[in-house]
Simulated assay, not measured.
Amino acid sequence: MQPIYLALLFIAIIAIGEIISILSRARIPTLLVVVATVFLFLQTGLIPESYIEDSTFVAVGGVLVPVLIVHLGTMIPLKTMIQQYQAVVITLIGLAFSVLGVLSIITVLFNYETAVAGAGPITGGIIAYIVTSEGLRDAGFTAIMAIPIAVFTIQNFFGMPLTSFFLARYAKKIRTDETAAAIQPTDEEASESKKPFVLPHSWMQSHFVIIFLLFAGGAFAVLLDDLTGVNASLWALVIGVTAAALRLLPERSMEKANSSGITMIALIFVVMNSLIGVTWDQIVASLLPVIVIMVVGIVGLMIGALIGAKIFKWDRNKSIPVVLTALYGFPGDYLIVEEISRSEGKNEAEQKRIMDELMAPMLIGGFTSVTVGSVAIASILISTL
């Protein structure tokens, strides 16, 4: 079959998953629909395993992984991260307790490899999953490949309801509180993005130049991996954050180059390709460790959130949701805040107050965990196998 037909088939599955996610307000994530559908088709023989690779998107997605991570490093300005340092620190404390809990308890109950297979995905999103699954495959641990898949696809169903519960309680407290700390962007922050680029401004208006710089950053990360042995994902993050801070790259670079949509599709093909070789028996065998990983990981996140709340004198109903963004990330964090503000605010002013209070720390929490923390955690842990 022609690659264009195969690509159309799988992109249709992705589009259907996206529509279901939109209709369910992200309660049923796109990737859950895609992974479940493709896995079912592979197991029943409706789609031969060769179809995924023959679409040629898998090779493209593999090349784009370090490039996308460089882009993720440009997502939120370093200055904003510093100003929201409390949300960043609380999230990192939650991640630390979650990972330590999984590594200690799961290693005792099962084994270290199983703990590593779950620790990366439980703290983040698609990149952490890809780093973990590819690392397991390269290390020869194909028998537990189902664990990161299962953790990655079902953690939304735990994280989003818990977040909604705590945020609703917090929103009730702040909706009539005139002293609530509304977080507004300052003129200084707004002017930050207007600082001149290192390269001529006209060059940075070109999509091709931005894409070239992203690829250069990704290639440099891979080179540093070869030279140092430190995972390319970590280098790519550092390169992205540094390049954005020094104005070598614009913020949200891939979006500025109008390339984020096709890049994410190629990345999802990498996820689909990781399903090849995973069997029903492996899924069934992984259910017990996955359930234990989910419980231990989520409890660890919440314990860390409570400790962070004590340190910075935050309300626990605010700190816990910020840390729980590790389980779903963007756009789930945005959609939940929007829904809570609309349902709990009794008028437009109260809705705005809730949005202003919660949006920035929730987005920063998700960025810290899903975009940065989980990639670092997965990269480090995989290197220990």
Rank of each mutant, 00 (worst) to 15 (best):
Glu344Val: 14
Phe215Arg: 06
Ile4Val: 09
Leu9Lys: 15
Ile239Met: 03
Leu288Gly: 00
Leu8Arg: 12
Ala349Pro: 09
Thr228His: 04
Val270His: 13
Ala139Tyr: 14
Ala181Asn: 12
Val131Gln: 07
Leu385Asp: 09
Val292Cys: 06
Asp333Leu: 00
Pro289Cys: 01
Val131Trp: 10
Gly118Val: 00
Val198His: 13
Met1Asp: 13
Glu178Thr: 12
Gly73Phe: 03
Gly62Leu: 13
Ala236Asp: 06
Val296Met: 06
Leu288Lys: 02
Gly101Lys: 02
Asp187Lys: 07
Gln84Leu: 01
Thr186Leu: 03
Phe212Gly: 05
Ser164Thr: 11
Val290Asp: 12
Ala221Gly: 05
Ile93Thr: 05
Ile340Thr: 10
Pro361Gly: 01
Gly118Ile: 01
Gln84Arg: 02
Val292Arg: 06
Gly73Lys: 01
Val99Leu: 03
Trp235His: 07
Ser343Leu: 06
Val70Pro: 06
Leu103Pro: 14
Thr30Leu: 15
Gly345Cys: 09
Val102Asn: 07
Met254Pro: 10
Ile268Lys: 06
Ile130Gly: 08
Lys313Arg: 12
Ala257Met: 11
Lys194Asn: 08
Ala236Thr: 06
Phe152Lys: 03
Thr91Ala: 08
Ile364Met: 11
Ile320Arg: 08
Asn111His: 08
Ala266Leu: 02
Gln184Val: 11
Glu339Asp: 13
Glu178Gln: 10
Arg353Ser: 04
Ala257Trp: 12
Thr384Lys: 09
Ser21Met: 07
Ile130Val: 09
Thr186Asn: 08
Glu251Pro: 00
Ile69Met: 06
Pro148Cys: 04
Ile283Tyr: 15
Leu363Cys: 01
Gly218Leu: 03
Ile307Trp: 14
Val372Asp: 02
Tyr5Val: 00
Asp138Asn: 12
Ile336Asn: 02
Leu109Glu: 15
Ile147Gln: 15
Leu214Arg: 07
Val131Arg: 08
Val108Glu: 13
Ile336Glu: 01
Gly101Thr: 03
Ile211Ser: 09
Pro200Glu: 14
Ala150Tyr: 13
Tyr5Met: 00
Val271Ser: 08
Phe215Ser: 03
Glu189Ser: 02
Val299Ile: 14
Leu72Ser: 03
Thr368Ala: 03
Ser21Pro: 09
Lys172Val: 01
Leu109Cys: 11
Val35Trp: 13
Asp315Leu: 00
Ala326Phe: 04
Asp315Phe: 08
Gln282Lys: 04
Gly120Ile: 03
Ser253Met: 05
Val278Met: 08
Asn156Val: 05
Gly329Met: 03
Leu40Pro: 13
Glu251Leu: 05
Ile377Met: 09
Gln205Val: 00
Leu100Pro: 09
Thr279Glu: 10
Gly304Arg: 10
Ile268Thr: 13
Lys256His: 09
Ala168Ser: 11
Glu18Leu: 01
Leu32Asp: 07
Ser369Arg: 01
Ser341Trp: 06
Val238Ser: 05
Glu339Gly: 04
Trp280His: 07
Leu275Asn: 12
Tyr85Gly: 01
Leu167Val: 00
Tyr112Gly: 00
Glu344Pro: 04
Leu72Asp: 02
Asn273Phe: 10
Val375Asn: 15
Leu237Pro: 06
Ala309Met: 02
Met1Tyr: 15
Ile126Trp: 15
Arg353Val: 02
Val38Gly: 11
